[in-house]
Amino acid sequence: MRRVWAILVAGVFLYFLVGQFLPIIPTFGNVDLFARVAFDIINKSTTTNYNAVEFKKSKDLEDGSANVVTSIVVNYRSFDTLGEVSVLFCAAIGVGILASMLKSKKRIEFEEHKVLRISTGIVLPLILLFGAYIFIHGHLSPGGGFPGGTTIALGVLLLMLSNNEFKVTNVAKYVEQSAGAGYVVIGLMGMAIGGVFLMNFLPTGVVGNLFSAGVVPIVYTFIGFKVGAELSNVISDLREG
């Protein structure tokens, strides 16, 4: 009976996929691109007069981030970045499943070292601060959500190596989930306000200021929290077994 159901469901999916998309696929060489992709997006430019962009002076550009990479990654290509975040999420799930399939459920105990433990207390706040700095200033300087979150996860790893009582609690999972949901909510807000998913709907401000580039710092803050919590969970999964 289950096989019949499976074949039925697969058949329905196949019918919809082929039936929906077969007529849309044009013959080779006859693609009308403007009908497929929005004309406005193809003709997008940063400003109409691109000689006029000056640091700390230009106002209200289409994308106000001083870091060009960020302006591509979180503004023009933001949907792809959402996919990247989900890829990382899948990787974290995979590590969790593999770690739970291990035969020995023993928790790895490290031998504690007094020097490391004391110096971790001094260095750890600086590491966390630096990670937060990287992702908050992602639209101004090299960096962004992914390296910032990784730096924070490194701080968690240091804490784990130096302290046997430390455990990553469920708070990390909640932070990760709500940060990922926040990214999607920002995207939906762009859809509600501007009509395009993940649109930059806030005012972009002056190039080079901390409060500029509209939605980019908010998205990078979400990504930073998400990546940091996710990698902390990966480390914790590998340790707890």
């Binding site: 031998e111 070292h113 020097v115 490391l116 110096s119 001094i122 260095v123 600086l126």
Partner: peptide
Amino acid sequence: AFVALTNPVAASVMLRAAYK
């Protein structure tokens, strides 16, 4: 200041791992 905070600790931990 940062190098003074981190570098000796790293060396100490590495040497301790080698000794263990």
